[in-house]
């Protein structure tokens, strides 16, 4: 899973040492917010955002294959909007011809599709960069240092730990389903997924209770403490944030 299982790992580690993780988190969150708030009709701005992101990707030396795998996360949303675009019959005044085909689709839905695809792609690539460069506890510590609400930080920390555990449980449930319905009809198999999701929720809830007991048993008092030292925030770090903020303002307002 790690993007750092690569010959360029040392370069990335060196970059991670030079850049304060708090700077990266602030810049990435600012980037995601600004581009998400830009109407897709102002598409030249998205070209500029993509250019800025490309510079960051090249500087970080993150593997493109690894980034493309992360982009698969956006697919369900893009597919859902694409299906709506294709299936909804457009009204006469909003119909546009799909380039290269005779298919008429709704213009507003086509714009929505472009918006979802562009914003999801830029957001996921941007959010992936800190994950690629720093160990996860460092990012959690950076979020704490930035005074992100405690509950939110804990949700992120636990999600990182338990997404794999729940994924394994889901996989075992799918295997159990397949073992008992090897030639079941697709509709029937899809319906079973609903009850599996419910079962997974109940198991997750029960696990949360046991994890809570394990935390309390070791003195947990509501504060998540990590032994990850952050260096002093320097003038150069503040300057880096200002440069990125300035670039984003220029791209958004120019």
């Amino acid at each position: 899973m790690s993007p750092c299982d690569h010959p360029e790992q040392a370069t990335r580690r060196a970059l991670a040492r030079r850049v304060d993780p708090r700077v990266a988190v602030v810049c990435v969150l600012a980037f995601v917010t600004v581009q998400a708030a830009t109407p897709i009709e102002e598409w030249p701005r998205f070209v500029a955002y993509a250019g800025l992101l490309l510079i960051a990707v090249i500087a970080s030396r993150v593997s493109l294959v690894w980034l493309l795998k992360r982009l698969a996360l956006a697919l369900p949303f893009v597919i859902a909007v694409a299906m709506s675009t294709l299936l909804v019959r457009p009204s006469a005044d909003s119909a546009v011809r799909l380039p290269g085909t005779d298919l008429m689709v709704s213009g507003p839905l086509l714009i929505l599709l472009a918006s979802v695809a562009a914003k999801a792609t830029l957001s996921i690539v941007a959010l992936s960069l800190p994950v690629a460069l720093w160990d996860f506890p460092v990012l959690v510590r950076a979020l704490q240092a930035l005074r992100i609400p405690r509950l939110f930080v804990m949700l992120i920390a636990f999600m990182w730990r338990y997404v794999y555990v729940l994924g394994d449980e889901a996989r075992r449930m799918v295997q159990a389903r397949d073992a008992r319905s090897p030639r079941g009809r697709l509709v029937r198999r899809v319906l079973v997924v609903g009850s599996m999701a419910g079962s997974l929720f109940v198991r997750g809830y029960e696990r949360a209770e046991r994890v809570g007991q394990a935390m309390v048993a070791r003195g947990y008092d509501g504060r998540l403490r990590l032994l990850v030292p952050l260096r002093r925030f320097r003038a150069a770090d503040a300057a880096a944030v200002l440069v990125v903020a300035g670039a984003l303002c220029a791209m958004r307002l120019a």
Binding site: P137, V140, A157, W160, A214
Partner: peptide, 12 residues
């Protein structure tokens, strides 16, 4: 605890 997934809840 019986299940290490309950006991080990931190990222590392």
């Amino acid at each position: 605890f019986q299940n290490p997934d309950d006991q080990l809840f931190m990222p590392t």
